[in-house]
């Protein structure tokens, strides 16, 4: 198994300052799958990856990385893993090619061995011909892609990617998605964290939603959606003009009618999100409400995420 985590607890600080960031996490990756870890800021995604790599000692629980116990044999296990950290840590004193060569050296790979692979690694990252480019001259997207290439120098069995596409333009995101799919097709197991629901829905065979150090849902994207939310959503917004009353918004409409016409309704800003198994009666009602506008769509992962983790800001 590429990664097996059972009962993982991580506490930072001691005494009155103590804070449980992970509270009994179970996670087990199947060989060759792409697994996405979703969660609001501060949910514990990065901490989970740090524990998995043996970079911080768990307070309780057991971890096996590429079959080896962590943190006891973390060093050996990391030899088989590639990591794209959340914060870029490319070496600014080196060119692109030198970054790959020096990083390979940390795995005990000789320069003569890695040099012939540099063109292929750079091409994989869409950085053809950039071998002599300095890091400072790269855009944010190029740095992220070079970091991905750097994570592959040791031909890892397992790739851990912490928000690999945050801050990237759509072109770069699509390139990274395509490359990650290529890697899983070749048998590499991938664990990635992300804030992008479409990224998880598109890439992940399975995913988990993490909040306050607990798993709130786990399964394939379809399973998670089916298990946690009504299939249909009608978003209602605009001005409500009921006969004889002053104009008011979607919230007032929801207070008056949503309860009867949908299973569940949430207000966020100016919009009412109505969740239902059958949208037909609601849509028929809305057809006679001048001023209100609506959008009818199938429920998606973002709906599940917001339902499970709430709509309030985290920090």
């Amino acid at each position: 198994m590429p990664l097996e985590i059972a009962g993982l607890v991580k506490r930072f600080g001691e005494g009155a300052e103590a804070k449980d960031v992970l509270r009994g996490l179970d996670l087990s990756l199947r060989p060759g799958e792409c697994f996405a870890l979703l969660g609001p800021n501060g949910a514990g995604k990065t901490t989970t990856l740090r524990c998995a790599l043996g970079l911080t000692a768990p307070t309780a629980g057991s971890i096996r990385l590429c079959g080896l116990p962590v943190p006891e044999q973390a060093r050996e296990a990391r030899a088989r893993v590639g990591v794209v950290p959340q914060i870029d840590s490319l070496d600014p004193d080196f060119t692109c090619a030198e970054n790959l060569i020096v990083f390979a050296g940390y795995f005990g790979i000789r320069e003569s061995e890695i040099r012939p692979r540099i063109p292929e690694l750079l091409a994989f990252a869409g950085l053809e011909g950039k071998d002599k480019a300095r890091i400072q001259s790269l855009s944010g997207g190029m740095k992220r892609r070079l970091t991905l290439a750097r994570a592959l120098v040791n031909k890892p069995q397992l790739l851990l990617l912490d928000e690999p596409t945050t801050g990237l333009d759509p072109q770069a995101r699509h390139l990274i998605w395509e490359r990650l799919r290529r890697l899983t097709a070749e048998g590499t197991t991938i664990l990635l964290t992300t804030h992008f629901m479409d990224e998880a829905e598109r890439l992940a065979d399975r995913l988990a939603i993490l909040d306050n150090g607990r798993m709130l849902a786990q399964g394939s994207p379809r399973e998670v959606i089916a298990a946690h939310i009504e299939p249909q959503v009608v978003e209602v917004f605009g001005d409500w003009k009921p006969g004889g009353q002053p104009d008011s918004g979607a919230a007032a409409w929801a207070a008056a009618h949503a309860g009867a016409l949908s299973r569940r309704c949430e207000i966020s800003g100016e919009t009412a999100f109505c969740y239902t198994d059958d949208a037909a009666p609601l849509l028929a009602h809305l057809a006679h409400q001048p001023g209100l506008r609506s959008l009818h769509r199938p429920a998606n992962l973002e709906d599940v995420f917001l339902k499970l983790t709430g709509r309030e800001l985290r920090d």
Binding site: R78, I87, Y106
Partner: peptide, 9 residues
Amino acid sequence: EAIMNAPIA
């Protein structure tokens, strides 16, 4: 931090 992701403690 980058180096610690490799098999180096």
